[in-house]
């Protein structure tokens, strides 16, 4: 195994971590501010991907599609927040899990239905990265890396920085943080709490839609694409500590790197102690369980996650 290959795998882990962060950030914000467990967050990711693919197909421009994905996911987010989720903020977790589970069914079937009516099939849709970012670029030390994946890393880190600035330095951010710690207080200060909540939800939804569009260009755009990512994003925020943006960032990078490097290194590691065929199978099996093992370990030693508030 060469060092170059290892560096490339670290980049891959970083890229998958950065995308997970975009998903996890919205999820953790919504939980931190409104106390809502939103299983339908993956559906917003899917809405973003479908909006991007549809607009890119019609106009031929990935960038217009990307803009559409932000708009569509934010709009879908506002719609469900105002009509449904608003009623759930004070309910217990069970009601929230069930209602948002119902939303997953509704979103998935509605998109299948719409796609079928418009295109006549429910097959995966086509979305290609923009021509500007096609192919591979040469990095120092002779590493060849896909330009688009590099762009994902950069875009994701920029969004992370922007989010930290937004939460840390702006009036909106102050309100959001205040909303996390004391709802009555900020209502008493004359902040329209309903509007604040809708805004936070739209922000989270737009981030999910953005992630869906970015990832849609390297994967397949299809119904059901949101749920695996949703589960990973939950793993991320639980590892990081629910409600913490910083925790979401570290959790996402940890999960991205563990998953990528585990898939790569475990089969090689087992090959040192057993025959290659069983090493491959055992390594691959263990790799698929690895992040769940990681999550269980974190929770056993720090029951509220790495950056979570101590009870």
């Amino acid at each position: 195994m060469s060092t170059l290959l290892l560096i490339e795998q670290v980049l891959n882990g970083l890229q998958s971590g950065v995308m997970l962060f975009l998903m996890a950030a919205g999820l953790t914000l919504v939980f931190g501010v409104m106390g809502l467990i939103n299983l339908a967050h993956g559906s917003l990711y899917m809405v973003g991907a479908f909006a991007c693919a549809t607009v890119a197909l019609l106009t031929g421009s990935f960038w217009l599609g990307l803009a559409a994905s932000l708009a569509a996911a934010a709009a879908a987010g506002v719609l469900v927040e105002v009509t449904v989720l608003r009623r759930l903020y004070r309910r217990d977790h069970l009601d929230q899990v069930l209602a948002t589970f119902a939303l997953i069914l509704i979103f998935s079937e509605a998109i299948t239905f719409t796609q079928k009516q418009l295109t006549g099939t429910s097959l995966p849709m086509y979305l290609d990265p923009p021509a500007l970012l096609a192919g591979a670029v040469s990095l120092p030390f002779g590493i060849q890396y896909p330009a688009y994946r590099l762009a994902i890393i950069v875009a994701g880190l920029l969004v992370a920085v922007g989010l930290f600035l937004l939460i840390g330095k702006t009036r909106l951010g102050i309100r959001i943080r205040a909303g996390e710690s004391d709802r009555e207080m900020i209502a008493a200060l004359g902040v329209d709490i309903d509007r604040l909540y809708t805004l936070v939800f739209a922000l989270g939804a737009a981030l999910a839609g953005f992630a869906g569009a970015m990832v849609g260009a390297i994967q397949s755009v299809q119904v059901g694409m949101g749920e695996p990512v949703l589960i990973l994003a939950f793993v991320v925020i639980v590892i990081g500590g629910v409600g913490s943006i910083r925790g979401a960032l570290w959790g996402a990078l940890l999960v991205g790197l563990t998953d990528t490097l585990g898939r790569f290194l475990l089969p090689l590691g087992f090959a040192e102690v057993m025959d290659p065929a069983s090493a491959r199978a055992v390594g691959a099996s263990l790799a698929s369980m690895l992040i769940y093992i990681l999550m269980a370990l974190v929770l056993i030693f720090r029951p509220t996650g790495l950056f979570g508030a101590r009870p």
Partner: peptide, 8 residues
């Protein structure tokens, strides 16, 4: 859904 590690 992500094959970056395998492609490397």
């Amino acid at each position: 859904t992500d094959y970056a590690a395998e492609i490397a």
